[in-house]
Every structure is written in structure tokens, then in C-alpha cells.
Design a protein around this nucleic acid. Structure first.
Lengths: 121, 121
DNA sequence: ACCAATATATCGATTGCCGATACATAAGTC
DNA sequence: GACTTATGTATCGGCAATCGATATATTGGT
């Protein structure tokens, strides 16, 4: 089916996607990769080289917190949203809606896109 | 009203926006800035430092062609889409739709997870 | 004479993305 | 036993996009 989405378009919204997947439930990195892939019909692949630095940045910014789990056979670092992270997510989601509406309006004007009812905020 | 959209989210789709605005009609840089701003309810600002290199890249890639107009009092460099540029735009627009749908699906799902905080024990 | 708007352009700093690489354990196969 | 694949976290270097600052020049208004 649909190919993986070009990285060009992804730039800048990886944070939003990671935050939204973590909002569903806490996850460790490897699980996050799978979840994002599954949730996007395998269209969005988050490489390890992108993901781990990203998670570290999110933690640095206080948007997620992490905790090592050594009780399992494989050591895993679990991440979960902080209260700050949830607020940020909500804000970023609203921003995204605005942004997407802008682009859709542009594309609609040149008739490349069939107008869809505006997504609710 | 709505603020200008954060550059974070914009990264990677400036090409698409510029191509779509140029698809409406040929424009020179300064006019393109105004058009993009107007078409987005002043939400998207394309700085000169971003735009000119971007236009040069698009030309380099054969997606737009340029022509100096010296007949007016101010010299202007007009840009218009090439056939290749139109094809690229159509392809990018489709890709955008896919991408936007992915994100929207993610954001829709978390709304089930983040309802009102009232019911939380 | 002065200042804002128009018009194009480059440069450097910053940052995000990603392939390559490294390391380690676990599970399955020949 | 040897080999491969999957799981799991992490860093590094290269590449490319964004943008503020800066430069240059003309036009129009007060």
C-alpha cells in the first residue's frame, strides 16, 4: 500500500507525534517505534538515531520523565508524559490543526484537494 | 487572533506551500511573501532569508523557472512553475494528505485518552 | 533630509533528521 | 556449536532547512 512518508514533510512534527503516542500510555523506546509504526499503518518510521536524541530532548525540556526497568530480562527505559508534557501536547495539537487547515486551504484553492469539512479543534 | 505558526511545525513543507502559491499565478519573491501571508490569514510568514534560498533550490531542481523584469521601476525576478514543478506539486500534495491523515488519526485517538480531568480519581 | 516600503541576496548559527556504528542480550535455526 | 534475527539503548558525523542579521539599492511620502 502506501509508502513510508518522506522525511521532508516529517521535519518539525516528530515531537508532536511522539508526545501523542506517549499520551496513550507510557512506553520505552523500542515499543514507541512499533506503536508509531502501527498507528500510522506503517507509514511513519521513527529511526533509533532520531528517536533517542528526541526523547532525551523531551526529557531535558521536562515534557517526559523516564525510569529504568531492570526487573525484566532486557533493561528498558520507560517514558511517560509529565503534566507539562500534556499541556504542551494540547497546545501543539491545536497549532497543528491551524497549520493543517492553512495548507489544506492553499491546496484546495489550486484544486488539488477535495475540500473536507474543517477539522474541529 | 491566531498567532504566527511556529517554525518547528513548518519545517519541511515550505516547498509545498511555495509551489502551491506559485501554482495560482507566477510571482516574484516579495509578492510571494505577501501572497502566502494573505492566503494564510497572516499565520505563515516566509522570511527573505528562507525564501530566496528556497526559490534558488526550486529553480536548481527545475521545478520553477525565473525571468528578470527590468521594464518596471524596480527590478523583479518572476518565478513560475515548470511542468516538472506541477507534477511535483501534485505528488507532494498527495503525500501531504497522507501525512496529515496520519497525524489527525493520532490526535483523534488521544482525545479518547485525554477527556476532561474531572473524572480522574 | 529623513524614513518606511519595496526588492533581492548572502552568511553564519542553530537545529533536526538519519544512516552508520557500537554494544549487549535473547530466541530461533541449521 | 555456529549463525542469524529480533530486541534494546545510545552516540556520532554529515546533510540540509530555517532564520536573524546584514548588505545593497530604489521609490514614495512627509
Amino acid at each position: 500500500m502506501a509508502d513510508q512518508i518522506e522525511s521532508e514533510l516529517l521535519r518539525g512534527s516528530m515531537d508532536l507525534m511522539v508526545l501523542s503516542v506517549l499520551a496513550q500510555s507510557p512506553k520505552y523506546g523500542y515499543l514507541l517505534q512499533k506503536a508509531l509504526s502501527d498507528n500510522s499503518q506503517q507509514q511513519i518510521k521513527l529511526s533509533a538515531g532520531t528517536m533517542y536524541p528526541l526523547l532525551h530532548r523531551l526529557e531535558e525540556a521536562g515534557l517526559v520523565s523516564s525510569r529504568w526497568d531492570e526487573s525484566t530480562r532486557r533493561r528498558r527505559k520507560w517514558y511517560e508524559l509529565t503534566a507539562k508534557g500534556r499541556k504542551k501536547l494540547i497546545k501543539q495539537a491545536e497549532l497543528w490543526q491551524q497549520y493543517a487547515n492553512c495548507i489544506n486551504r492553499l491546496l484546495t484553492e489550486i484544486k488539488l484537494v477535495i475540500p473536507t469539512p474543517a477539522t474541529q479543534g
